[in-house]
């Protein structure tokens, strides 16, 4: 239930028609979704579910199918290892670690995009990782709220 709701929210945030001048400043909501699951709920995270849920993200962004699966798996793995040590620190430190992890994910993305014939510019990927790290705190709060809501409704039942 929590996975479905957070995933739906992520898809809505990705599908929203933002003005084109914002495209460089937009965070990657898909990365933040995996970050939340990898950091906060890694014991509930299934790799198969993650791969399946990455396919609509590929379709919405128009990238090759599997690109986001690869990046999601890398982020989830990295954060599963790092999770216990950074879950308790303040939001600034969390955002810094997330920025580093997303930079590694961006490097993977850059490599795959170059292989598939696109012309990515690395500084834009860096900027995207940076804005994603900045958005981490509010989005984490939103996901926490959704998780709390689903837990409460399940408890009432």
């Amino acid at each position: 239930m929590t996975f479905g709701l957070t995933w739906l929210l992520t898809l809505l945030l990705i599908a929203f028609p933002y003005p084109s001048f914002l495209s460089l400043a937009l965070p990657h909501f898909g990365y933040l979704f995996v970050t939340w699951w990898g950091l906060m709920r890694n014991h509930q995270l299934s790799m198969t579910l993650l791969l399946v849920s990455s396919l609509p993200v590929d379709v919405l962004y128009g990238t090759a199918l599997g690109l986001h699966g690869l990046i999601f798996a890398s982020i989830a793995y990295a954060l599963t290892l790092l999770g216990p040590s950074i879950r308790q620190v303040n939001w600034l430190r969390q955002s810094t670690v997330i920025f580093v992890v997303l930079m590694i994910a961006s490097a993977v993305s850059y490599w795959v995009r170059t292989l598939t014939g696109q012309a990515p510019e690395f500084h834009i990927l860096v900027f995207q990782a940076f804005s994603s790290a900045l958005f981490w705190s509010p989005l984490c709060w939103l996901y926490d709220l959704l998780a709390q809501f689903t837990q409460d409704s399940e408890a009432q039942r």
């Binding site: 790799m47 993650l50 791969l51 090759a64 199918l65 599997g66 690109l67 699966g69 690869l70 798996a73 890398s74 793995y77 599963t80 290892l81 795959v112 598939t116 014939g117």
Partner: peptide, 26 residues
């Protein structure tokens, strides 16, 4: 087990990327 799952996921993803971008089969 996490590393094994990562390897499986990466293999699956890379295969999917290859099939989609080279053969347009998806």
């Amino acid at each position: 087990a996490a590393a094994v799952r990562l390897v499986v996921a990466v293999t699956f993803s890379v295969t999917t990327i290859f099939i989609d971008s080279r053969f347009n089969a998806l």
